[in-house]
Design a binder for these strands. Structure first.
Lengths: 328, 328
DNA sequence: CTGAAAGCGCTTACAG
DNA sequence: CTGAAAGCGCTTACAG
């Protein structure tokens, strides 16, 4: 590795001058400057980030914590994060919390100890992990906040409105026994979706008592919840709060030999079907997840450029799409 | 951030001693050692990796370059990498090359300049990017090698045998007009698969001339290739080299209103269906992709622990699974 | 077994 | 506009 002093020695000048030329700081005669830049180029000089950090305490590394990278939803998110980071000269340290808050906490501590210049988190659930985080930690949440009153921005969609719209759609098709399978309501996004669903039912005078089945976010939970619903009730529509819950519910619906959508409609969030490979084309809300990633990185870049702490909105709502499929 | 000298001052000893105690190097009286570790714990001391690096030139960071993290295949790979890295105390710098060799090269240079302790690469294609890489760069390829003669280990399956087996299956069902849609044959894994396919046809005395349609790896390529095949021939079976090509081909098969598997069988690699959501249950070869990631990180950890350069095999073949679906 | 000192490759006041 | 010097937080020969 060629270093600063190598190019200083070659040019018979001091390392200080080379450093200033490279960092565009302080006054430098234009010719010298040009000469230094040329030589640096010729030598293929790459500043040693570790040494630089020791003085500046600044990195160009963004930390990312996601709950499950084998879920395509988060794959698209990471893709958006990575592309935007690259365009801004940042690199990405990736952490998969595996839906586990203990892992999430460990990763967060690790990222802090590495002095990353910002952290994008899709929380695995509700926690106090970030309660003592300061504004300088440059944390941005995506999809959901880890607790009700966050002092860090959250990038999401208007979950309340989207859920209302999805439910309204079911009602407009004449469905009246609409049951919901949702993730933990202590999570902000899940709760907003439940509220939208409930308010819509109420607005139409439809029953809602005991209609919400709360569970985890995964496939198996969808299976269990759907079994319970069918054993207790005779729904004519199902609302699920994410894609995996819908897939789990569907497997039970099939086992019961119910026909979609005639016997039962099903509508959900995030069930995109990029290659037309799904056996059911879901009516679904699609979140612009790559945009989430882009926006998150842009926020962090902005936080790093500005001296002041973040002044923007704490909730950043992106546009979603309502997709009418054949499941309703 | 509390630093080494803080705990040295607190204990009235020299930083050298603290460092030795923390790193288990050199002789230290057991009591002092215990005292130091306790104090470090109490202070929640985290060594500054940047300062440490400056002396040791060693990091605990693994670089990962994948072609497309929005493909679930690579999502599972990254998940395996991340979990194993975490278990070994390593962190992961993630890079999505977006199937672009120029990006891949840039990322590789970036990772080298960060002195990562190893790099896992699923190459975006054939390149000379790693031609001058030394054994100390600790590069491990996954899925495919970037060129024929690699001096770095490759983790994959026996692609030749898997392709042969898949083709043999089609033949055993009485199919004789079996066409193949494959990625660039200059890539080792694609080429091995084509060879397995061709050798199997030859072994059964079946025609193969002009039966191989070579294209890129993506969905659109699968569409185009399938259109071409159907415009020129009347296949009774299709072999595709990955999942996206199969999905693209399927969309054309449907447009032609052909029935699977009676009119046309289709078999492919990597079309896993974790949630039973696919409209076609493919007969497919499943690679143990999370295991790939685990193995890759283990290799890198081993390389870092050993003084000698890597002595193991340059091709590491993992077990695959043959899944009989309803597409054949 | 412990400490003083040098140095890793940068940056940045401080002089000039 | 340029240079000499100090220092970021560690580690590691070298003494003792």
């Amino acid at each position: 590795m060629v270093k600063l002093t190598d190019i200083a020695r070659k040019l018979n000048i001091s390392p200080s001058t080379v450093s200033r030329a490279l960092n565009q700081k302080g006054r430098i005669s234009p010719e010298l400057r040009r000469l230094i830049l040329e030589t640096a180029d010729e030598f293929q000089y790459q500043p040693n980030e570790y040494a630089r950090f020791l003085k500046t305490n600044q990195t160009t590394t963004i930390g990312v914590i996601l709950p499950d990278i084998s879920n395509i939803f988060y794959g698209k998110l990471l893709k958006g994060i990575d592309a935007t980071a690259r365009n801004n000269g940042f690199s990405v340290i990736f952490c998969d919390s595996d839906e586990d808050l203990a892992n999430e906490r460990t990763y967060y501590e690790m990222l802090k100890s590495k002095n990353v210049c910002g952290i994008v988190v899709a929380p695995a659930g509700v926690s106090d992990i970030y309660d003592n985080a300061s504004a300088e930690d440059h944390i941005v949440f995506v999809d959901s906040a880890p607790s009700g009153s966050s002092s860090h921005p959250v990038i999401t969609i208007d979950n309340y409105r989207a859920a209302y719209e999805l439910t309204e759609h079911l009602v407009s098709l004449g469905r009246s026994r609409i049951y919901a399978i949702v993730g933990p309501r202590c999570e902000t996004s899940a709760n907003d979706r439940v509220r939208g669903y409930l308010d819509c039912l109420a607005a139409h005078g439809l029953p809602a008592e005991g209609h919400v089945f709360e569970c985890e976010h995964d496939y198996a939970s969808g299976v269990k919840a759907m079994q319970k619903i069918l054993s207790l009730h005779t729904p004519d529509a199902i609302f699920t709060e994410n894609n995996l819950l819908a897939y789990g519910a569907l497997s039970v619906i099939r086992a019961y030999r119910l026909t979609i959508p005639s016997d039962l409609s099903i509508a959900c969030f995030d069930a995109s079907d990029d290659f037309g490979m799904m056996s059911v084309a879901f009516t679904t809300i699609i979140q612009p997840v790559a945009e989430f990633g882009k926006k998150a990185v842009e926020l962090i870049v902005g936080m790093n450029h500005s001296q002041d702490s973040y002044q923007g909105p704490m909730e950043i709502l992106m546009e979603y799409a309502f997709i009418r499929g054949q499941s309703t």
